[in-house]
Design a protein around this nucleic acid. Structure first.
Length: 278
DNA sequence: CGGCCAACCTGTGCGC
DNA sequence: TGCGCACAGGTTGGCC
């Protein structure tokens, strides 16, 4: 479930294994994910050293010693696992598309059933101007995201608040789950016009968005520890969502008494409580 | 340009 | 047990 918190958790899980590591073997078993995998994928990575892993929105950026920047996006179903040399599966699992082996024998495997993810090359000088990166809005956990910015974004939209918050140009990293959760916490109906949320609504949403994401990262981080030991999996977390996926259940807002409903907006499910979200 | 839908692809779960 | 359908965390090309 890769929205910002999951991507950040994967990044944090990979850092100790990859930062400072030299790549001994780089293998791509499919020719394309959402886009073709670079033809020089193996050649360019073999012998290269990974200096650091960063994240922009839902993209993981792998900066290498020679200036190469690897762009990784998990799409809908992308998973990453880490395996020590002695715990490596004998044969690649279904949908294990890409694999890196570091000089110390650690294997990192990218698995993606639907192949909506992507792996592309850029470089550290031009990454900010990359077409996939350059138009992305402010990081929600950074200072560039604030009430003024959100207000400005909401005021020039006729769409719903749900659609507005899903728009990566307005704010980075939110996906279907965390937009539902943030709107539930803020008591804002997902069908409300974005414009009408400017002002008070935006003032409430900014800290709520920050909290929701921060809590999810914290939950992922604590789960991650066990998961890496157990199976090497990154990206699978048990989050306790209050609205998402809870159609028909009682709303957990104190004294609300309402029921979580599901509607479809722009082809995507929205979960909300019509009693406490207006 | 803003807004919306279809499409990309595979897997899963449910009703019959 | 099988079949068909709805639906799934993201993104974007193309059409009003």
């Amino acid at each position: 479930m890769p929205e910002l918190p999951e991507v950040e958790t994967v990044r944090r899980g990979l850092s100790p294994a990859l930062e400072g590591a030299t790549i001994a073997v780089a293998t791509a078993r499919v020719s394309k994910l959402r886009f073709p995998i670079p033809e020089d994928f193996s050649a360019r990575l073999t012998g290269n050293r990974i200096e650091r892993l960063t994240r922009r929105s839902k993209y993981i950026l792998m900066e290498c010693a020679d200036g190469l920047m690897v762009i990784l996006h998990l799409g809908m179903s992308g998973r990453v696992t880490i395996h020590k040399a002695d715990g490596l599966p004998v044969a690649p699992a279904k949908h294990d598309h890409v694999e890196l082996k570091t000089a110390d024998g650690t294997h990192v495997i990218y698995n993606d059933a639907r192949r909506f993810g992507l792996i592309l090359f850029s470089d550290r000088e031009t990454i900010a101007d990359h077409p996939l990166i350059r138009d992305i809005g402010p990081e929600p956990l950074g200072n560039e995201f604030n009430v003024d910015v959100l207000n400005a974004g909401l005021m020039r939209r006729k769409s719903s608040i749900k659609a507005a918050l899903l728009d990566q140009k307005l704010v980075a990293g939110l996906g279907n789950i965390y937009v539902c959760e943030a709107l539930w916490r803020a008591g804002i109906h997902p069908s409300r016009q974005a414009l009408s949320v400017a002002g008070d609504g935006a003032a409430r949403l900014v800290p709520i968005i920050r909290d929701v994401l921060t809590e999810a990262i914290a939950a992922g981080g604590s789960t991650l520890k066990d998961y890496v030991q157990a199976s090497g999996e990154l990206g699978y977390f048990q989050h306790s969502f209050k609205a998402y996926g809870r159609e028909g259940e009682a709303c957990s807002t104190p004294d609300c008494g309402g029921t979580i409903e599901r509607i479809v907006q722009q082809g995507r499910s929205s979960f909300f409580c019509s009693t406490c979200q207006e």
